[in-house]
Amino acid sequence: MTAPLLEVRNLRVEFPTRRGTLVALDDVSFSIAHGEVLGVVGESGAGKSMTGAAIIGLLEPPGRIAGGQILLNGRRIDNLPYAELRKLRGREIGAIFQDPLTTLNPLYTVGQQLVETMVTHLPLNPAQARAKAIEWLELVGIPAASQRIDSYPHEFSGGMRQRVVIALALCAEPKLIVADEPTTALDVSIQAQVITLLKSLARDKGTSMMLVTHDMGVIAETADRVAVMYAGRIVEIGAVRNVVLNASHPYSAGLMGSIPPVGRRLERLQQIDGSMPRLSAIPRGCPYNPRCPQVFDRCRMERPELMPARENLAACWLYAEQGVPRHA
């Protein structure tokens, strides 16, 4: 097996506040292979987007990486000076954000923004970059690209704007895309189109992707592996099939169970009782223990690390002995 493209080791992100330091990400480790799509799911505030932001080095201050390492192609990037990291952004790691209505600068044409990005990273002059920009717009499915290149963002619909954002993220040919809920702000009918486009472009270019979303349908359809996050930690990681159909961690199981089945009427939607703890009040032991239906003493005392659990890795004491559930 070759070295992974991205490796995150024991990442810890802290937010110093007036009332003490909040730990937003704790001991997060995962890797993404070349050409692989890793889905990251979890409730709001679980730390999904924070992980993406830490990788591209754009944590909102005062948030900071307090521990661990991020390696891209074996090279540490979490401790690079700002100017060095800047050169990686766009060129090595592209980013796609949630809301296409706000991610494009309203005062510049889409062509200007594409050309600017390419000229910054690639050995192109503006005329060549413009030709490439038209190619990219065609590639992401903007009709009449050679005319639309001089349009401003407000002259595009939301779905079209997200296509432009995808072109912008990919135009300097990065090896990794961090896509932070790329379809959440779009109409359902547009979501599928955009996801299909993103998936096929990533496959054609051999780009790896970290796909942050809370849409399990998108994950099931797009990702190779999936990581489930809860309260700033990864609680389960494994192949998408195994996690979706046969989740090991009680939280993942609850998350999957809350997707309503199609074609069968339910009296009540399945839900996980309670809510995720605030960062300032993460319980001792396993952070999920107050909500867990299978909680036992050890969960309240000791924090579980990721350990083999059936075909996946899960941070759950149920699997403390050779990956066999204790109760089940």
């Binding site: 754009l58 800047r86 050169k87 954000f97 991610t103 990005t117 910054t120 912008l168």
Partner: peptide, 15 residues
């Protein structure tokens, strides 16, 4: 967001 995105595209601070 568009400033964050401009940074994510690796543009120079000046730009």
């Amino acid at each position: 967001d568009y400033i964050k995105f401009a940074r994510a595209r690796g543009l120079t601070n000046r730009a």
